[in-house]
């Protein structure tokens, strides 16, 4: 597939995530939109990894070579960091719900009280 299609798909997913963060007030939904943005970036990294491989295969290298493996490992590490982020973030949201009995981010517009 042309690399442009993957770029546009990732951009569309990322923009939908941005729109979600801007238009929703539920803290959990905002968090899910951030996950969506992370996944758009992951898809783009994998597509670029395969583009790099296609480039080196067009240059006449052996078909089993491992060009573009760094991008896929980056995706792996992004998933690791996202998992760690989700545990802490959800713990914070649960604590916020216990304190103010709501997940509305508009109640958190000041740091005190």
């Amino acid at each position: 597939m042309p690399i442009n299609l993957y770029i546009f798909l990732a951009l569309a997913l990322f923009s939908i995530g941005v729109i979600g963060v801007l238009t929703r007030r539920n803290a959990i939904i905002i968090f899910m939109c951030i996950e969506l943005m992370l996944n758009a970036v992951n898809l783009l990294l994998v597509a670029f990894s395969k583009m790099h491989l296609a480039d080196s295969m067009a240059a006449g290298a052996a078909p089993t070579l491992t060009n573009g493996i760094d991008a896929q490992l980056f995706v792996f590490f992004i998933m690791v960091v996202a998992a760690a982020e989700v545990t802490v973030g959800l713990a914070i949201i649960v604590m916020m719900y216990r304190n103010i009995h709501s997940v509305d981010v508009n109640f958190l517009n000041r740091l005190k009280n």
């Binding site: 583009m51 790099h52 295969m57």
Partner: peptide, 24 residues
């Protein structure tokens, strides 16, 4: 401008667990 206009679909051994594990 990109180096190559096509993303290779269904070819190449980059994404297999053997190669990724070795690099990791």
């Amino acid at each position: 401008d990109s180096k190559s206009t096509m993303a290779l679909v269904g070819e190449g051994d980059t994404g297999l667990i053997q190669n990724l594990g070795k690099a990791l």
